[in-house]
Simulated assay, not measured.
Amino acid sequence: MTVFHLILTYFLLESASPLKRTGQTNVTAEPGQNITLPCGSAGDRGVIAVEWRRTDLDSDYVLLYRDQQLDPEHQHPSYQNRVDLQNRPIKDDLSLVLENVTADDGGSYECRIQRGTDREKRSVLRSAPVCTVHLDVALPPPPGNMDGSTDESKDPQSHQHLGLVFPVLTTALIIGGLMWKSHVKSLPVNEADVEEGRL
């Protein structure tokens, strides 16, 4: 077989593949949101199982769908009752729906599929990932600043205390001045100082 035939065969096989492997997709979310981690079309080519896994979790998976139902047997506890497939039964979309996102959900997720009639019961699909999605969970802005900045000079509420500072300071100066004047008047006056013009 020539090099030309090998290259042609490769491109024909790739173009016939219902799932194209693409680069990593990035998704950003805030805690509390419901989000979808996208994964391309599976076509209708005998997909019998879908597994979503986070790359930094050991043996537990995020979601395993097989035998036309979710399999919670080895699902990581933090994802129980918070994940589902975008479409069930599997038709054309393998996207993962993640509800009530938490800061701990951040990381890289991989989707793997199993085709055919292989009924081997295992919790880990050994096929190559069909898609990879990185989830970045951004913390919401701190409360009190309307624009999300941490610069207090932009927050009108941070200047409320200035309205009280001026009257309090003015009152303190007046009282202090009156007390000083009263103190000076109570001092004994020396006649020699008065004659020399010091007082």
Score class of each variant (00 low, 15 high):
Glu152Asn: 09
His134Lys: 09
Pro143Ile: 05
His161Ile: 15
Ile90Thr: 11
Val194Gln: 04
Cys39Leu: 11
Arg66Tyr: 12
Glu30Ser: 06
Lys185Trp: 02
Gln157His: 06
His183Trp: 15
His5Met: 10
Asp93Thr: 09
Glu152Asp: 08
Thr170Ala: 14
Leu164Met: 14
Lys181Phe: 09
Asp136Phe: 08
Asn26Val: 11
Glu152Leu: 12
Leu178Thr: 10
Ser41Arg: 11
Ile90Phe: 02
Asp193Leu: 05
Ser158Met: 04
Asn81Leu: 11
Leu85Glu: 00
Asp58Arg: 07
Ser15Leu: 12
Trp180Val: 15
Glu51Thr: 03
Leu12His: 05
Gly163Trp: 02
Ala138Val: 13
Ser123Gly: 10
Asp92Glu: 15
Ile174Phe: 14
Pro156Thr: 04
Leu63His: 12
Trp180Asn: 07
Asp56Val: 02
Val165Gln: 08
Gln69Ala: 15
Val50Asn: 05
Leu169Met: 11
Met146Trp: 05
Leu12Gly: 05
Val168Glu: 12
Tyr79Cys: 03
Gln24Pro: 11
Leu96Asp: 13
Asp92Pro: 00
Val27Ser: 04
Glu99Met: 13
Gly46Leu: 00
Pro31Tyr: 09
Gly43Tyr: 04
Pro18Arg: 12
Asp60Gly: 13
Lys91Thr: 15
Gln157Asp: 01
Asn145Ile: 00
Val3Pro: 01
Asn81Glu: 06
Thr132Tyr: 02
Leu98Cys: 04
Asn145Pro: 07
Leu173Val: 12
Gly32His: 08
Gln114Ala: 08
Gly23Cys: 04
Asp118Arg: 01
Lys181His: 08
Gly43Asn: 07
Pro140Glu: 07
Arg66Ala: 14
Gly23Asn: 09
Pro18Gly: 04
Asp84Phe: 06
Asp118Pro: 12
Thr170Met: 12
Pro38Gly: 04
Cys111Asn: 11
Gly46Ile: 01
Gly144Ile: 00
Phe11Pro: 00
Arg115Gly: 00
Arg82Ile: 04
Tyr109His: 14
His5Ala: 15
Lys154Phe: 13
Pro89Tyr: 09
Leu96Gly: 02
Glu110Met: 06
Thr102Trp: 08
Thr22Gln: 09
Leu6Trp: 09
Gly148Gln: 03
Glu110Ser: 07
Trp52Asp: 01
His134Gly: 03
Asp56His: 13
Asp93Ser: 03
Ser149Asp: 01
Val3Glu: 15
Arg53Cys: 01
